[in-house]
Design a protein around this nucleic acid. Structure first.
Lengths: 146, 146
DNA sequence: CGCATAGTCGAGTGATCCAGTCAAGTATCC
DNA sequence: GGATACTTGACTGGATCACTCGACTATGCG
């Protein structure tokens, strides 16, 4: 069970935008240069984020992308749902129709459901703002205060 | 991000064994009949469980499988690790070597690590015994007490 | 208006993984 | 020794991943 690189790349792209709120639209090329994410692949990911309403894209020269909401109102869960679809799904193979022992199957499902709920609660508790603060705090030793 | 059917089937097989502790070895064919899991596929899954030390297999006629430990000492996490390998891994695509912005990557990783820890703690808190009890309780209305 | 810039979209690809199938092998008990 | 039962490995079609590529479209500037 793994988190795809789409999830990592997408979240990093959002973090990149969150750290530059107010600087006007950020071009995907710049994100590519800073984050080292393949540019074409990044573009696909940005489309997913736009369709989910997390970012806005401005076309044409001097265009780019920016967060659709302030960083405090975008959670990691928002990003992962947009990029990877629902968490912890169980397609349960081809025998999904056999009616044998539905009891045991339901038990297993309840465990999965509980796991998903716990995971979603955790991911929904982390916003882009939190992550930016965490980053700023970590390089705090090098920061200058006025 | 999904849990494969291997995880569901394997856990159901373990539950099947847990409900028949003390009845001697249970044959994979019987599990197949009760749970409706493809017999050949089930055999592969049982091998995984045996290699992980969760069950023991007895060969020959009247052979079969049984739990290697009491149901109270086998957790859902044990089963999932045996069947699906480590939870919530992030292989992060082919660019894993580019040294750009390791900070953001680490931030994302920490979120993932936190998620995994939370998930593992939850799954490790549920034993086969818990699930059997839950099942017995649910059909409690139909039970006879001596 | 025309052109370069920049973002959008969809098709395609090799690699890997799933879920299952199949065939052959091996151990055990009667 | 033979039937039973579990083991093992190879294989397959389909799906998904992580891109790659090429064409399309919208925008702003001269």
């Amino acid at each position: 069970m793994r988190i795809s690189s789409k999830g990592e790349y997408g979240l990093r792209a959002l973090l990149d935008l969150a750290q530059r709120v107010g600087e006007g639209p950020i071009q995907s090329h710049d994100i590519h240069l800073r984050q080292g994410i393949d540019e074409n692949y990044l573009n696909q990911i940005l489309i997913l984020l736009r369709r989910a309403g997390l970012i806005e894209s401005i076309r044409g020269p001097q265009g780019g992308h920016r967060l659709a909401r302030p960083p405090s109102q975008i959670t990691v869960l928002d990003a992962l749902l947009a990029l990877e679809g629902p968490l912890l799904t169980f397609d349960s193979g081809r025998d999904a129709l056999t009616p044998t022992e539905p009891m045991d199957r339901n038990l297993v499902r309840e465990v999965w459901d509980g796991a998903r709920e716990i995971l979603e609660r955790y991911l929904a508790s982390i916003t882009l703002e939190d992550l930016c603060q965490r980053k700023a705090q970590r390089s705090g030793a090098m920061m200058y205060y006025i």
